[in-house]
């Protein structure tokens, strides 16, 4: 189980806020109902989509297969220099 709680909290609060919080603050008017539905669905869809992507990568069963150049460039650019043993 490899997950950190921070992105989960951030995203849940963000989309939860859009989907659950904001609908309460929609001004009274003829379209209140529609706006609420829009906000709720937006929250649900975006949160679910993010969640699936996060959870799918949480416990990777396979790793990326890279060619030599990519490996070297990656090590250099992403600042993890290869130590020769």
């Amino acid at each position: 189980m490899g997950a950190t709680i921070i992105p989960f909290i951030i995203f849940t609060v963000l989309w939860g806020g859009v989907g659950i919080g904001l609908p309460f603050f929609v001004p009274k008017g003829p379209n209140r109902g529609i706006i609420q539905v829009i906000l709720m669905l937006t929250g649900v869809c975006c949160w679910l989509f993010w969640l699936c992507c996060y959870v799918a990568q949480m416990n990777p069963l396979i790793g990326p297969k890279l060619d030599e150049n990519t490996v070297l460039i990656m090590a250099k650019q992403w600042a993890h220099p290869i130590k020769t043993e």
Binding site: Q57, G63, P64, V71, M74, A75, W78, H80, P81, I82, K83, T84, E85
Partner: peptide, 10 residues
């Protein structure tokens, strides 16, 4: 990225 290459000879 969560993937990296370090501390290794590949």
């Amino acid at each position: 990225s969560s993937w990296y290459i370090r501390n290794t000879s590949i």
